[in-house]
């Protein structure tokens, strides 16, 4: 008799505890959601850039998610690259050294990117040609819409490159 009572009490206590845990879970979910980036931040997730404004030999920097994206229009005297370029003469790479994350500088006379931190060098295609960088400069997700490139969205061209492992 007494034991039965205890177990019944326990069952209710456990049920209460479980139900309270559901509530705590709900509250934690709400708290979790409050830490998500604000709409104005999310609006920066994609950036549209008109690549036709870049003159041959010129390099422009787009700000995408707080990171620099180099948009270079190559001239014939620069390194050519069939595989890392969709629109023939353009190189679009994330301007962050794959070694330790510094921002490489374009050296116009040598036509290479040179990283000030540890001397890593990349050619006009973004391929690592000297120093510690383990791989070429990353290609950001992009989608081509006429003359515009939309950074942050994965278009069919980007997906193809990604499949071939050319984006990183």
């Amino acid at each position: 008799m007494a034991e039965e009572k205890v177990s019944r009490r326990d069952f209710l206590l456990y049920a209460m505890g479980a139900w309270a845990a559901v509530g705590v879970g709900g509250v934690l979910y709400g708290m979790y959601k409050t830490w998500e980036p604000l709409p104005e931040v999310k609006a920066q997730a994609t950036v549209t850039f008109d690549i036709s404004t870049v003159q041959p030999g010129e390099i422009k920097v787009a700000n995408w998610r707080g990171k620099p994206v180099f948009i270079l229009r190559r001239t014939p005297d620069m390194t050519q690259c069939k595989d890392r370029s969709i629109k023939d003469e353009y190189t679009v790479v994330l301007g962050i050294c794959t070694h330790l994350g510094c921002i490489p500088n374009w050296e116009a006379d040598k036509k290479i990117w040179h990283c000030p931190c540890h001397g890593g060098e990349y050619d006009a295609c973004g391929k690592n040609i000297f120093g510690p960088p383990p791989r070429p400069l990353d290609v950001p997700p992009f989608k081509i819409e006429g003359n515009n490139i939309v950074l942050g969205e994965e278009g069919p061209e980007y997906k193809q490159m990604k499949e071939k492992g050319l984006t990183a």
Partner: peptide, 15 residues
Amino acid sequence: YLVVMAGLTFAWKKK
């Protein structure tokens, strides 16, 4: 949710 909680706590209190 709270109505269910009130039901459970009431049953436990009774017990």
